[in-house]
Design a protein around this nucleic acid. Structure first.
Length: 588
RNA sequence: CGGGGUGUGGCGCAGUCGGUAGCGCGCGGCGUUUGGGACGCUGAGGUCGGAGGUUCGAGUCCUCUCACCCCGACCA
């Protein structure tokens, strides 16, 4: 590609209001352009990268037996009503109707459609297992798009769906995807970990996320430094101390002026946070008041609380709502509350004689004990795992890292096949629902994440596997020097003929300008042609991440470039710093 | 949905007390230059996000509104 003809201008300066490195660099390097919030066009350079990412995905999906197909982006609402998700999913799903007033939706995902296909196409156990996938547009009207391609509303996702006779078959396909995803992300040059995850609205049992570590990640993962535990903070657990055995002391009210926070209370009474109970109040989507209690040194994890309370959504309660159940903001405790669902963390059950609120401003109760002084509707793990808490497996203090979710895998089980009647007959002639799994990778997010992990202050440094072009070819020299241009033209033809993808900067700019744009766009290899080295019959070759250039005879340029590309390609798949293959699976 | 911020030429920005809209980069032309974002001359390009209002007069003041960015909530 000659840069003089490239569609899309590279920018010296990015728009002032973008924050993420990948967002800024992808705008500057003419990879993407915004159309609206969370809606982007991919310019030719960006589209080349995304297509390469998608090709890697295709190859690895095909390698585990995947068959590519294509499902529609517009679905009849009735199909979503059959699984109950039409009413479950909120405004992130866009609903509309066609000219015949039929309710329609824009696809956020394709479990419904693939299960509908399965019930039509699959009748017999002889047709199973199956694995189908497509790479297609999704629309999710996110409450807040952010960070360029990291979180968008319209995006392209590879989603695959496994269909099996039984749980063992599903398990095998799940493991296959795990391995395939590891290979995909390695080939894309991503550093990542696999963590146990929340199944959320997908339903089903097991779920894992592939998390690329990045300071700009939206998620937080908890990792044990020994490598024996990794989980999304939404579901992460930690080792609990053994329950205390001290005798229960009598309940006693104590005046504690101006202690509306746990810290103020602990300071006032000169006790550790762990000797207090913290009450947190929510109103559930069902309208029920949810009264959560954790020990004072811990925090409530809303995802866990949603699960424990059975509420789909939780909103912090207002002061009026809190008083309506008999509690007092800042001095609340479950002792004596009415009309609330009381959810108690295991830490409170296992810690006797805690200090809790008296539900009266300025007063607390000493020696509050579950069972004697108040009852729990649910006792569960609702505490948030944080850095420093002990690993649930080995007790080593956990570390917390920010990460970007680049892929996820779900064991759906029969949630969709039962709802839609996708069944098959076994060898005995008995009918069973198909065991299903679903597996997703966002190709645009992967691309942006690669930029997050592969850039420096000058620009992007693409891994060779996904670079828009392998080589930046620069012809340097004045208008009165015709030789560099002629030699570069010839090299362009030679390299291209050798199967090397060349982005040829044939413009008339000065050397500095071309160097800077080459660094910004980030092709793995740079080849420069200029009069002075031409006099020796040489061209200059430099890797994007190398500090020193080398000079090679013109006749050996293609071979040298080819060698450099092959080296970086094998380094990608064999990079020992990318370890996840040996990290044991963490189920929830 | 809550909080904060920004909307002025393609990009980055300035515009004071309300008085005929500017700078840098980029873009076109001519010339000189040519290894880390050159220089001179010359030109094109803006109903100042939109609507309404105040005023003799609004980029500037007031009201409403839209869009985008950031934080939070939310999220597969």
């Amino acid at each position: 590609m000659r840069m003089s003809h490239l569609f899309g201008r590279t920018l010296r300066e990015a728009p002032g209001d973008v924050e993420l490195p990948s967002h800024r660099l992808m705008l500057r390097a003419a990879l993407i352009r915004p159309l609206g919030s969370g809606i982007f066009s991919l310019l030719p350079l960006g589209w080349r990268v995304v297509r390469k990412v998608e090709q890697i995905i295709r190859e690895e999906m095909d390698a585990i037996g995947g068959q590519e197909l294509l499902m529609p982006v517009v679905h009849p609402a009735d199909l979503w009503r059959e699984t109950g998700r039409y009413d479950m999913v909120g405004p992130e799903m866009t609903r509309f109707h066609d000219r015949g007033e039929r309710d329609m939706v824009l696809a956020m995902t394709h479990e419904e459609v693939v299960t509908d296909l399965a019930r039509q196409e699959i009748n017999s156990y002889r047709q199973l297992p199956q694995l189908v996938y497509h790479i297609q547009t999704k629309w999710r009207d996110e409450p807040r798009a952010r960070g360029g391609l990291i979180r968008v509303r319209e995006f392209t996702m590879k989603d695959s769906y496994s269909l099996d006779r039984d749980a063992a078959g599903l398990d095998a396909q799940y493991r296959n995807h795990w391995r395939a995803y590891e290979r995909i992300f390695r080939r894309c040059g991503l550093r990542f970990v696999v963590v146990g995850a929340n199944t959320g609205m997908m339903g089903g049992s097991a779920s894992h996320e592939f998390m690329a570590l990045s300071p700009y990640g939206e998620d937080i993962v908890l990792l044990c430094p020994t490598g024996d535990y990794a989980a999304n903070r939404e579901v992460a657990t930690f080792r609990r101390e053994v329950p205390g055995t001290e005798a229960l002391l009598p309940l006693e009210e104590v005046e504690t002026p101006a202690t509306p926070t746990i810290q103020a209370l602990a300071d006032f009474l000169e006790i550790p946070l762990a000797r207090t109970a913290k009450a947190v109040f929510f109103t559930g989507d069902s309208g029920r008041f949810v009264f959560a209690v954790v020990r004072g040194d811990l925090d409530v994890n809303e995802t866990k609380l949603r699960k424990a309370s059975g509420e789909l959504g939780l909103t912090p309660a207002t002061a009026e709502e809190i008083r309506a159940v008999g509690a007092e903001p800042g001095y609340g405790s479950p002792v004596g509350v009415q009309g609330a669902l009381v959810v108690v963390d295991e830490s409170v059950r296992d810690s006797p004689n805690l200090v809790a609120g008296a539900n009266r401003s300025g007063y607390h109760l000493r020696n509050v004990n579950l069972g004697r002084d108040f009852q729990a509707d649910v006792v569960a793990d609702i505490a948030s795992a944080e850095a420093g808490l002990p690993c649930p497996v080995c007790g080593t203090p956990l570390a917390a890292e920010r990460a970007i979710e680049v892929g996820n895998i779900f064991q759906l089980g029969t949630r969709y096949s039962q709802a839609l009647g996708a069944t098959f007959l076994d060898a005995e002639g008995e009918s069973h629902p198909i065991e299903m799994g679903s597996y997703g990778i966002g190709s645009g997010r992967v691309t942006a994440t690669i930029v997050e992990q592969h850039h420096d202050d000058k620009g992007i440094a693409w891994p060779v596997s996904v670079a828009p072009y392998h080589v930046s070819l620069l012809s340097l020299g004045g208008a009165n020097e015709t030789e560099p241009g002629e030699v570069a033209d010839r090299l362009y033809g030679e390299l291209t003929a050798a199967g090397i993808e060349v982005l040829y900067d044939d413009r008339t700019d000065r050397a500095g300008v071309k160097f800077n744009y080459a660094d910004l766009i980030g092709c793995p290899v740079r080849v420069s042609v200029r009069a002075r080295t031409l006099a020796r019959g040489e061209a200059e070759i430099k890797g994007r991440t190398e500090s020193e250039a080398r000079f090679v005879p013109l006749a050996k340029v293609a071979a040298t470039v080819r060698g450099m590309l092959a080296d970086s390609r094998s380094a990608l798949v064999n990079d020992p710093t990318i370890d996840s293959l040996d990290r044991p699976a963490q189920t929830m």
